[in-house]
């Protein structure tokens, strides 16, 4: 009985695993621009000035940026804005 149950469970377990794998295989893919943003952030981190002055123009972008609301970490958002500023300047 125990062995029968354990076989049944193993079968159900395999079925569950294959259902989950099939489900995740159909999941949406990440947008290509994520890679670009990641690399740009990383680049910004290397040149970002530590002086107070950059804060002023970073905060000027704050209310204008739709990306701000989609990022969980404001620091990341700031580096992103900073990299954007560098491109503009």
């Amino acid at each position: 009985m125990n062995s029968h149950n354990s076989d049944e469970q193993a079968f159900a377990d395999r079925e569950l695993a294959s259902l989950l794998k099939a489900w995740i295989a159909e999941a949406p893919k990440p947008p290509a621009e994520v890679r670009q943003r990641v690399v740009r952030y990383a680049d910004a981190l290397h040149w970002l000035p530590r002086a107070e002055s950059w804060r002023a123009w970073v905060f000027a972008f704050r209310l204008l940026s739709p990306e701000y609301h989609r990022l969980s970490n404001p620091y990341d958002w700031i580096t992103f804005q900073a990299s954007r500023c560098r491109l503009v300047l």
Binding site: P30, P31, V34, R37, V38, Y41, A42, L45, R70, L71, S72, N73, D76, T79
Partner: peptide, 12 residues
Amino acid sequence: SDLLQDVFVRLS
């Protein structure tokens, strides 16, 4: 997508 971005930004 946001988490993916966050994870790699943190890796950097």
